[in-house]
Every structure is written in structure tokens, then in C-alpha cells.
């Protein structure tokens, strides 16, 4: 499981970032997810990668949302101003990051989660519907509203 989990880390980390909008919170969430997976294991007949994302999202809902960490959005200047992202790309990247982070924190949480599950985790509408136990139509409408709001906020920003 360790090897599979190691291979999964970058994707899982992007997903954690998409939920938390902060590198530090994403890394904390990633660590908590890995700890949970290692200590509790994976249920029988469940795909590890699928389960890892579910654990990550549930942890975010249970703990991070409760602590409202995502309200303290920051651009993690020590990461993005330390030369790890350079030149024009840094400027563009920071602008984009700022805009997306600001926009995302204004999204209702149910829309935010669905957008992350489809756009970052890569789940189909049907899979999201099954995972969240909601109709496919609800997935479609939440996703659409999330993108519309995001487009509106990015245009305004």
C-alpha cells in the first residue's frame, strides 16, 4: 500500500489544495489523510486511490471546515516567492492563485467539493452522485453553479 500511496501523493495533494486553498493547510490535510490511511487501512474491495480521496475529503469536511481554516486563505509567500516559481510565471501564477483562492472561498461548500471531485480528482458525475448520495442532476447543477460563480468572480477580480 505504501508504494501505491506514494505514487498517489501528488494527485492527492492537488486535491487537498483544491479543498483548502492553502499550501500549508493542504499539506496538513495530506499528512492527516496519509496517517488515517496507514492506521485504518482500506476497506475490502475498495480501490485505494478512490478511498484516499474520500478520506481526504471527509477529513476536510470534519476537521478543517469545523476550524474554518479555509477562511484564512493566503498565498503562502514563502513558497511562491522563494524562487521555486520564477519570473513571469511567478507573477502570472500569483495573480491566478490569488484570484482563484479568493473566488473559491466565496463558493458554497457543497459546490466547492463537487468541483474538486470532478475537475481535480477526475470523477464522473455518476461517481460523484454515488459518493455523495445525491442525484446526478444535483451534481450537474452544483457543478454548473460553481463554475458560473468562479467565472464571475475571476472576471470581476
Amino acid at each position: 500500500m505504501q508504494a501505491q500511496l506514494t505514487a498517489l501523493l501528488p494527485a492527492l495533494r492537488r486535491f487537498a489544495w483544491s479543498l483548502t486553498q492553502s499550501v500549508h493547510d493542504a499539506d496538513d490535510l495530506l499528512q492527516a489523510t496519509v496517517e488515517r490511511l496507514l492506521s485504518k487501512g482500506v476497506p475490502e474491495n475498495v480501490d485505494l486511490s478512490r478511498w484516499a480521496f474520500t478520506v481526504c475529503r471527509n477529513l476536510w469536511i470534519d476537521e478543517y471546515r469545523a476550524r474554518k481554516i479555509r477562511k484564512t486563505v493566503d498565498v503562502d509567500p514563502e513558497v511562491f516567492e522563494s524562487g521555486q516559481v520564477d519570473g513571469e510565471r511567478e507573477v502570472h501564477g500569483k495573480l491566478q492563485l490569488n484570484q482563484v483562492m479568493t473566488a473559491m472561498k466565496n463558493l458554497p461548500e457543497d459546490q466547492h467539493a463537487v468541483l474538486s471531485m470532478v475537475a481535480i480528482q477526475g470523477l464522473s458525475y455518476k461517481d460523484v452522485a454515488a459518493e455523495l448520495e445525491i442525484p446526478v442532476g444535483t451534481v450537474m447543477s452544483r457543478l454548473s453553479r460553481a463554475r458560473c460563480k468562479l467565472a464571475e468572480l475571476l472576471a470581476a477580480g
Binding site: P10, R13, R14, F15, W17, S18, V23, A26, D76, V79, F80, Q84, V85, G93, Q96, L97, Q99, V100, M101, M104, L115, A119, I120, L150, L154
Partner: peptide
């Protein structure tokens, strides 16, 4: 923009 932003965490 959302997808690209998430990928930026790979830089850290």
C-alpha cells in the same frame, strides 16, 4: 484556472 492553480502546488 482552477485546475492550473491546483497544479501549482507541485512546485512546492
Amino acid at each position: 484556472s482552477f485546475v492550473q492553480s491546483a497544479k501549482m502546488i507541485d512546485e512546492a
